[in-house]
């Protein structure tokens, strides 16, 4: 537990000093959102469904960009190798990466959510449920992304490989996230959203435990 905290603190401090990752990822998310706006706004008024989809797509795209950059930085300093050699349990390493990625994505999500609600004129009701939906979705996404990001190691064309590996697996997260968000924004139907929330919870539980289990053999050879 302590090592998780220390590892997490390390990532946070590194990021606070450089600030590169947060800014770059937020900027990327904003640009993606703006592109969607140019595509959808201006014509007939887009439905709220579109806003939910846009939000989640922007999060997924920005998430991948941020994650691949984060692990690229680890690689440049060869710090991943150092961490793998250190006597920390591998699972702690995985969990700390997962939380670090989630933190980054939560910041991006806050900005995206604000922007989406402004640009698409969506009034957010059920704020708490929406936040829960976003948090659980992020955790699921990060569980998969942290695993593959860390184990990509020195694989060839890893920038292409990361989305290739991550997106198909997290499709359920995106489905659940968008459906849940749509349910909240349009019909304001908490029952449907609650169903998707439970779905995400199960998904997170399965994927995080699977990630902890698979992380060790996956990164073993790359050290």
């Amino acid at each position: 537990m302590r090592s998780i905290y220390l590892l997490l603190w390390k990532d946070v401090v590194v990021e606070l000093r450089a600030k590169e990752l947060v800014y770059a990822t937020i900027f990327f998310a904003v640009v993606v959102l703006l592109i969607f706006c140019f595509a959808f706004l201006g014509g007939p008024k887009p439905t709220v469904d579109v806003a939910a989809g846009v939000l989640w797509v922007a999060i997924a795209l920005a998430g991948t960009v941020g994650i691949s950059r984060a692990f690229e930085r680890e690689r440049e300093g060869d710090t991943m190798r150092a961490l793998l050699l250190s006597p920390v349990p591998r699972s702690a390493l995985y969990i700390s990466k997962l939380v670090a990625i989630s933190l980054l994505m939560v910041i991006v999500e806050a900005v995206s959510l604000l922007l989406v609600s402004l640009l698409f004129g969506v009034t957010v009701t059920h704020f708490g449920t929406l936040v829960a939906l976003l948090l659980l979705g992020t955790a699921g996404f990060a569980a998969v992304a942290a695993l593959f990001g860390a184990s990509l190691g020195r694989a060839r064309s890893r920038d292409v490989l990361l989305p290739l590996l991550v997106y198909p697996i997290v499709v359920p997260v995106l489905i659940a996230g968008t459906r849940g968000t749509v349910a909240l924004l349009t019909a304001a139907d908490p029952a449907v959203a609650a169903f998707w929330l439970k779905f995400l919870l199960v998904f997170d539980a399965v994927f995080v435990s699977l990630g902890v289990w698979v992380f060790e053999p996956l990164v073993a050879g790359d050290a």
Binding site: S151, A155, L161, L165, V206
Partner: peptide, 29 residues
């Protein structure tokens, strides 16, 4: 298959991870 074909060294492990997650995905949904 793509990752296996174009992943280069280390892709075998990644693919193994992908297969495990993929197989977990399906019953879940």
């Amino acid at each position: 298959l793509f990752a296996r074909r174009y992943g280069g060294p280390g892709s075998r492990k990644l693919c193994a991870g992908l297969a495990l997650f993929g197989a977990a995905d399906v019953p879940l949904i």
